[in-house]
């Protein structure tokens, strides 16, 4: 059975969304320092700060890619904040690109904010929230 990627969000439709701020406080956060290189899959139900180098798939509730950070691979998260380099696809409800962001690939989003100066090479398709909730471990095939 495919598991929904957003485990927390799966509860949102039947319950009430008002509990969101509580969860945000509880989110366990991980930090990958600038000297760290990870090759593989990162899977967390909490926050993830990346200042180093990641090659591989990332699943998180919230991802912050620092300006020195770089990611090569697909990112699935509820909130994504990019200040560094990303080569791959993003699947996220809320996407924020800082002025230092350098992204190549597709950014699937529901809401997006782009700061002046951000570099984006690729498409930014809009998707309804249901699209992101239906995502499972097997990501859809897309061009480029």
């Amino acid at each position: 059975m495919p598991q929904p990627v957003f485990r927390n969000s799966a509860k949102a439709p039947d319950g009430r969304g008002a509990k969101a701020p509580d969860k945000r406080v509880q989110l366990p956060s991980s930090e990958l320092g600038s000297a760290l290189t990870v090759v593989g899959v990162l899977d967390t139900e909490g926050e993830l700060f990346i200042h180093g180098n990641v090659q591989g798939r990332i699943n998180a509730e919230r991802l912050v890619l620092g300006r020195r950070g770089s990611v090569e691979g697909d990112v699935v998260a509820r909130d994504v904040h990019i200040g560094g380099r990303l080569n791959g696809r993003v699947f996220a409800l809320n996407v924020t690109l800082d002025d230092t962001a350098d992204v190549s690939g597709r950014i699937f989003h529901n809401t997006v904010t782009v700061a002046k100066g951000a570099r984006i090479d690729g498409r930014m398709p809009w998707r309804p929230p249901s699209y992101f909730e239906a995502l499972d471990d097997q990501l859809p095939e897309t061009k480029s």
């Binding site: 990958l32 600038s34 760290l36 090759v39 990162l42």
Partner: peptide, 30 residues
């Protein structure tokens, strides 16, 4: 910016499948 984030923390909610390599310290809880 390079010097501020020296220690990496892998929290209890994070699962990593793959290699980790760092020239600094790592604290793993996950």
């Amino acid at each position: 910016p390079a010097g501020t984030h020296s220690v990496s923390v892998i929290s209890k909610a994070l699962k990593i499948t793959g290699q980790l390599e760092s020239t600094e310290d790592i604290q793993i809880e996950g």
